[in-house]
């Protein structure tokens, strides 16, 4: 790991001042991806700005319409939250399957969606539930936030404060984890609400995306069979040592059907 300066500011204003002043700063949340990347010398920030002392950006609250999760909330806290389990059990289920218990004690939801790894789980929940990402300057709908591999709508001095998830009628997440890393080879998040059906897919393409053909089919008939024959373009799938494009495209159907089946009992 290359040298860097470490900062632990106490307010969001101090964070933005540091972001303006430092040469090539990075924000440090749980560090579960960033520190690993720095150890491999794939990232060499001049400054790390640790958010752990900023008040008010971690924790979970719920009302009749939304579940709100602070950016610095750890995966383990989302997985074990009674409020999340009651309002959006699929979200607690998803959080409890990220990495391993030790990683879930450090990794944060804000860090996950700021990084936007194409195989991360939380982007599927954000897009699959139509969440809003609230930053220090605006509120970004998930549909506009995720911009492909490791790309987001975040600007340079923008910091995620919290994520607001509208509570659906019901929702389910199914993933086929890479057996070594537990990252999603393919994960499908399906939700039903007054606004309609959403199907968000992670792990399969260069970034999380919605399967609109599946959404249309499920809006008509909400059964696993309604998804028969609906496939994603193989040429747009990720291909790597873990799986071919064909395999990932096929897994989308399998995971989406499992998610729908779990909701239709």
């Amino acid at each position: 790991m290359y040298q860097f300066e470490y900062h632990r500011p106490k307010t969001v204003e101090e964070v933005t001042a540091l972001l303006a002043r430092c040469e090539s700063p990075k924000i440090l949340a749980g560090g579960m991806t960033l520190l690993a990347t720095m150890k491999q010398r794939l990232a060499a920030p001049s400054d790390l700005i640790d958010l752990q002392d900023i008040p008010g950006i971690s924790g979970i609250s719920a009302d009749a319409k939304n579940v709100t999760i602070g950016a610095m909330t750890r995966h383990a806290d989302v997985a074990s939250s009674k409020e999340v389990a009651r309002a959006i059990p699929a979200l607690a289920y998803l959080a409890g399957r990220i990495g391993d218990p030790l990683v879930r004690h450090r990794g944060t939801i804000g860090g996950s969606i700021a990084n936007n790894d194409p195989a991360a789980d939380y982007p599927a929940a954000c897009l699959g539930l139509g969440a809003s990402i609230v930053t220090n300057s605006r509120e970004i709908p998930a549909d506009d936030y995720f911009r492909g591999m490791f790309e987001t709508a975040l600007k340079d001095k923008e910091i995620i404060l919290r994520i607001v998830f509208p509570i659906p009628q019901n929702a389910a997440y199914q993933k086929f984890p890479n057996p070594a890393s537990r990252y999603a080879m393919v994960g499908a998040f399906v939700s039903r609400s007054a606004a309609g059906v959403r199907v968000a897919v992670t792990g399969a393409g260069p970034g999380v995306f919605r399967m609109t053909a599946m959404e249309t089919a499920l809006a008509k008939t909400f059964t696993p069979a309604a998804l028969d024959g609906i496939t994603a373009p193989i040429g747009e799938m990720l291909q790597d040592m873990h799986a071919s494009g064909e395999y990932r495209a096929s897994l989308i159907g399998v995971m989406a059907k499992r998610a729908v089946a779990s909701l239709t009992g």
Partner: peptide, 13 residues
Amino acid sequence: GLAVKSCTVLAVQ
């Protein structure tokens, strides 16, 4: 009080 992987935590954190 939480089990973590100390190879992926900075001492300063």
